[in-house]
């Protein structure tokens, strides 16, 4: 019973955290699912957003403006990954790793050290809610409203003329090109937007946790992927509405699961292994069900 009461106690904090990470999960979903561009830039864009925002806040810049600058920096990082892939024909994952690795140095340079405490500075939460900003319920409300706006905006965009053509680029690049869509531009903007979302998540995260750290992105991508997979299992992917809801639903469920496992006694050290194993299992499942998948591949080669 003791275990459960401590789990219950953590539920609000976990919800607040998972809503913030929803930004990253949306940023993982967009390239993976909409653009068919497996992208790892989020892992670097999330701390980039945090470091940029943290540095600007300590420099006395308005936190809202700091978030906006973080967003723009994230956008630039994503555009860079897409550009590297398109221009130099480098695999998307490798392009993402390159950018992510280089971002680590950039993040360090931006902050000038590995960690900046932000407890004593104003954050978007204290500006909006004053002294009550520390209640999880207030954070849930603020971030919840923001994420609802973002999801609604994405939903509208993907049903607009422009958004439909961006989806076509992921669904069939040949077809998209034949319909007069500039595949390169759409890819760059889409991957850029995804990293902008991740960076925004990072900028909000540093303001709730009270510090910015260059290592804060470690493993965020796999967490995001795990959340996305869970979300899609719940909402499905048949319509664009389900596809944009999946990241938020998945993030909410995934972080409660993690919290539950931790209260049950899962060692934090084992967490990344457990998450990795989970993602691996989910990705492998379709192929495990088809027994003899390997044989099919060999037959294809023989033809």
């Amino acid at each position: 019973m003791d275990v459960f009461s401590s789990f219950y106690g953590l539920i609000p904090v976990t919800i607040a955290q998972s809503l913030i990470v929803s930004f990253v999960v949306l940023g993982v979903m967009l390239p993976f699912r909409i653009l068919n561009f497996p992208d790892l830039t989020s892992e670097g864009a999330f701390p980039l957003g945090g470091c940029v925002c943290g540095t600007l806040i300590t420099a006395g810049i308005n936190p809202f403006l700091a978030c906006a600058v973080a967003l723009v920096c994230g956008f630039a990082a994503g555009c860079t990954t897409a550009f590297i892939h398109l221009r130099f024909k480098i695999n998307t994952l490798l392009a993402g790793i390159l950018v992510m690795t280089m971002l680590y140095s950039i993040n360090l340079r931006i902050m000038g050290r590995t960690n900046i405490p932000l407890f004593t500075y104003d954050a978007v939460f204290t500006i909006l809610a004053g002294a009550s900003a520390n209640f999880p319920s207030v954070k849930i409300l603020i971030v919840g409203l923001l994420i609802a706006l973002v999801v609604a905006g994405m939903l509208y965009f993907f049903m607009s003329e422009k958004g439909t053509s961006m989806r076509a680029v992921g669904a069939s690049p040949d077809m998209a090109e034949a319909q007069g869509i500039n595949v390169g531009t759409a890819t760059i903007i889409g991957v850029g937007a995804a990293s902008a979302l991740s960076a925004t998540g990072g900028s909000i995260m540093v303001q709730t946790q009270g510090f910015a750290d260059v290592n804060m992105g470690f493993g965020i991508l796999i967490n995001g992927l795990a959340a996305l997979i869970i979300g899609e299992a719940i909402t499905g992917r048949q319509t664009i509405l389900r596809q944009v809801l999946a990241p938020v639903v998945g993030s909410l469920v995934y972080y409660q699961l993690i919290s539950f496992c931790l209260t049950l006694g899962l060692a934090p050290a084992d967490l990344k292994f457990a998450t990795g194993a989970f993602v691996l299992l989910m990705l492998a499942l379709p192929n495990l069900r088809k027994s003899g998948g390997g044989v099919q591949i060999r037959e294809k080669v023989r033809e």
Partner: peptide
């Protein structure tokens, strides 16, 4: 190749109707 498989028939028709035209932010 000629169609986008994961998109609906209506969306494919929309993509074709807008071939070579300006695509805006209005509802598709």
């Amino acid at each position: 190749i000629g169609t986008a498989p994961t998109m609906t028939i209506g969306e494919n028709m929309l993509l074709a109707e807008l071939r070579g035209k300006r695509r805006g932010f209005s509802y598709g």
